[in-house]
Each structure stands twice: as structure tokens, then as C-alpha cells.
Write a protein that binds this DNA or RNA. Sequence first.
DNA 1: CATTCATGAAAATAAATTTCTCCTCTGCGT
DNA 2: ACGCAGAGGAGAAATTTATTTTCATGAATG
Lengths: 287, 287
Amino acid sequence: MDLFHALSDEDGKLSALEKKLAHLVLENVDFVVNSSIIDLAGRAGVSPPTVTRFCRRLGCQSFSDFKMQLARMTYVGLRYLKPEVPTATPAEVAEDIVTKAQNALFQLHRQLDLKALDEAAHLLRGADFIQAFGASGNSAMIVNELHNRLFRLGCRINASNDHNMNLMLSAAAQAGTVVFGSSFTGRDLGLVRCLDLLRQRAIPTIVITQSNSPVAAAADVLIAIDMPEGKNIFRPTSTRFAYLGAIDILANLVAYADRNKALKALRGIKEELVRHRDGDDRQLLGD
Amino acid sequence: MDLFHALSDEDGKLSALEKKLAHLVLENVDFVVNSSIIDLAGRAGVSPPTVTRFCRRLGCQSFSDFKMQLARMTYVGLRYLKPEVPTATPAEVAEDIVTKAQNALFQLHRQLDLKALDEAAHLLRGADFIQAFGASGNSAMIVNELHNRLFRLGCRINASNDHNMNLMLSAAAQAGTVVFGSSFTGRDLGLVRCLDLLRQRAIPTIVITQSNSPVAAAADVLIAIDMPEGKNIFRPTSTRFAYLGAIDILANLVAYADRNKALKALRGIKEELVRHRDGDDRQLLGD
DNA sequence: CATTCATGAAAATAAATTTCTCCTCTGCGT
DNA sequence: ACGCAGAGGAGAAATTTATTTTCATGAATG
């Protein structure tokens, strides 16, 4: 399914002409998607059968299958292979940001470890109390969001963004507590210190962070988010969307782990909001 | 270009068989995208020429053009026409949330008012001081994010989520201040009160909210985010992605409105972080 | 020198569109 | 009410176009 990877030919499995084709395709996705095999062959200076073989080698069933897969990726997946151009007009900025956010979500979906998420959800659902630790702007947002999602589901949860505080909270954590940590870089040493302490004290920990990082190593359950960084395409900005998506999935799984509890809590909040505001129940649960 | 709209046949321009086709397509996008005109015609119980005519009427050049356009939309745009099914497995939950988040971003991109965003960006860039008002979980996150994005660009900004506080801050606002408000519902009456007060005092205001809402009416610049609500498909959860995307675009436009200032501020933050942490500059600006 | 692999020409197949014809419905005049 | 012209929808068959297969050739490798 990974056309994407295949086209960049990291394994060097393509022949010379096929490389040429791959290059042409990556540079002119729009053209390829809207042209026939004859046009493409003509433009690449090869024969149609070569194109067919190229598609097969890429793992597609046929040329049209290839075009389809390509078309499906263009919106979300392929653009980042192009060199980054300095965007200027508002329209370009908007397109760039939306595309990258969608890419981040796309990547999230591809690399999601559902087992880890499910395990995390059950841990959280079973906890008497949850501590959520983040730091700096991005992780702070993530743990606040976790707080915002989970308290609605009847979880007892506290979010904290202060390293010293986190350390004290870790030291004071009682059995039944589960700690959730977020670090985009995986190098938040303050968080690592907390996790080490918690492990000694047999308090279960869950982190959302980069795999192969100190934070990842120090936790019990890892929700890995690895966005390509080498090409500096996914700036922290768009990575946030992946984290946020992961939090939403996690929260949803927590809700489903005990639907009745979640429903009861949600209903209570909703009623209170409606009573408190002007009876307009079109309002969301939390503006 | 709007296949989407055409397929739902709101103008009633399709004939009986074409309606049948449209229906089939919406229900079985994956099938259609991967089948030939003959398969599709067979399954719909019509002749191939009818399918060709159907595609033309929808504004496509040919059947393959139609398939391409469809393929490009499926990932992001079409799914929400399907009736909501109760999702159960982690994989389904993940797919559902990712899809909806991407839909929200897709919708955001479609309906974005770039002029308003650009105007907002210039107002913010020119402000001596920015107050950002939100309330409840979602808008609080949004204004915090705005704070998190803009302080890096050298803006003086304060985010506040407390209605009473907001009112006091509004009353105390001096010339040169610009106020930014967020409300997902557009019915945050506390925010409306602030905006009214600010208008009297000639302090410029920007809001991100639903159009045709009290909040929208009370502000000078409106960044409208209207997500379909009737079908209850976009839960607040996924709408957040659209808001967050809009904030990112806005922040980026603010940066571009005065690149030097933004660069200088960013560089300063980066240096400080690197010096302060273990010299590992792979770290993002804010974990 | 044999084998493998890449490639294209030509043939065969499959797909899509055009043309032509028929049918149905609608509106209008008798 | 009846019939008739015209418009538009639909499919059969023919045509065109696109794609794949088969087969032959030539280059590279061991």
C-alpha cells in the first residue's frame, strides 16, 4: 500500500527508466493523475508496457490502480516530497498549513499502535486518579486537552505543566494513580526524572512521545508519534495535529471502555450547561 | 470542481437513473474508484453510456476524470455523507477520528475567508498589546494556542479564560490593544458583553466563531468557522482541528507580516532553549 | 557463451465514447 | 379526449481509444 515509499525507491529496486518514471511522477503528480498511459509514456520517453511494468513493480495491480492510489495520496501525502518553497500569499499559507496538518493526521493513522492505545485507555479507565504531565507550550496543550476530554467521562484527573510541581506530585502519588506524560521531543529530562521515580514506586505510566527517546524508555506504555524530521517538513506546528488526534482517539477509547460511566458523566455536564445558559441546547459541551 | 455538491443533487438536475448512480457512488466510493465503467453500469443496472453522461453532467470531462476527482475526495471529503455507525473497535475509532479531523480541515480550507484572516493578521501585528479571550475547554485551548504561537513572534499577548477577568481587562484596555475572542458556538454571552464594551471604547476586536451568531455580530473582524451541524457529524472534537488550523494560519500570516521581527524573536527563544537544555538543538521550540 | 533482465513492437484485449435509434413524457392544437 | 411534434432519456452497436500481453531483441552479468 505504500506507494509513497516505493516511489522514492529507497531500496533501489527500480531500473533506470523506472527511476526516470518515478521522478516524473513525483514532480508532476497532477499531470500523471489526469493522463493516459500513452501520454505518460510519451512524456517520459518510454513505451507504454514499461509504464505498466513500472506500476506493477510499485505494487499496483494496473496502471489505473496506480493512478487511483496516486490520486488518493496527492491531497494528503505526496506534497512533502517537493522542496519547501517560501510561501507568501495568504492562500499559499493556508494551503500549506492545512496540507501539513492533514499529512500529520495521515501519518498518525499509518503508524498508530492501536494495542498501545487500547492498553493506555484501559489503564486510564481503571485509574482512581490520573496525573497528566506536560511542559512548554505544545505538551501543555496536549495534557490540558486530555484533562478536558477525560473529566467529562467521569475520570478524576489533574493536568500540570510545572516540572517542580510534577516531581512533587510524582513523589506523592498513591497506589491507584496513573501518570500520563507528553513530550514532543522525547528529551524532556524533567519528565524522565518523574517517570523514573514513578517506576521505582510502581505507579503505572503512559507517555505520548517519540519512540527511541529517553522519555519513551522510561515509561510503561508508549504511544509513539514519529513524524519525519530529517527533511524538516513537519514542524512542531503540524505535529500537534497528530498528537491531538491521538488524544482524541485515546479519550474515545476510554469512553468506550465504560460507556455507562461516560454517558452518565456527559449527560450530567450537558444538563448543567443547559440549565445554566439560556436553555439553548445547541451549545456544545464546552464552547 | 465541487463534485461533492453535484453528487448530492441539491438542484435536482439529475434524472432518475442518474440519481440512482449518485446514490450508489456515495454509498460505495471505494468500489466506484476501483471499477470500470462497465462494472459500475452493471451494478447500477444502467448502460455504460448513461454513466458517461452522468459524469459529464457532474462537470467532469470523462469517466476517468470523474474517478480521479472522486479518488481525491474520498480520503478527506465524502465519508461524512454516510450515516453514523456506532464504532466499536480501536481501529474503527481511530479511523473515524482521523477522518473527521481531516474532514474538518478540508472544510476549513474550503470556506476560509482569507481576506478576513489577512486583515486579522495585520491588526494583530500592528497591535501594541493583544488580549485573547476564550472560555470553557475548547476556546480556552484556542486562545492558549494563539498565545503560544504569537509570543514567539514577538507579540505582547495575554490569554485569559475567565469571564469576570475578561470584562475587567476589556474595561481597562488602552488604545493600541487588540482583542481576540474565540467561541465555538457563537453564543458566549460573556464574550459578547466584552465585545460590546470594546466597541464602545473603539478597541478593535477579532473573533473566530460561527457566522450569524451574537459573537460574530459584535466583533469588527470575523474569522468564520461553520461546520455542518445538522447531521451531528462534526462533534466539537473534530471542529477543534479546524479552529487550530485557522490559528496556525493566522499565526503564520502574523509572522509574514513582519518577518524580521518574527525571526529575531524566534531566534532568541531558540538560543535560550539550546543553552538551557543539553545543547541538543534537535529540540523543537517548545516541547 | 549462456543466462537474466530490461525494453519496445505488434497483437490482443479491454475500456470508454460516439452514434444512432427507440422510447417516454410533455405540451399543444384539433 | 385524442393525436402529434419535440425534447430528453436511455441503450445497442459501432467506433475509438487505452491498456495489457506476447513475443522478439539487445544489453549486461557472471
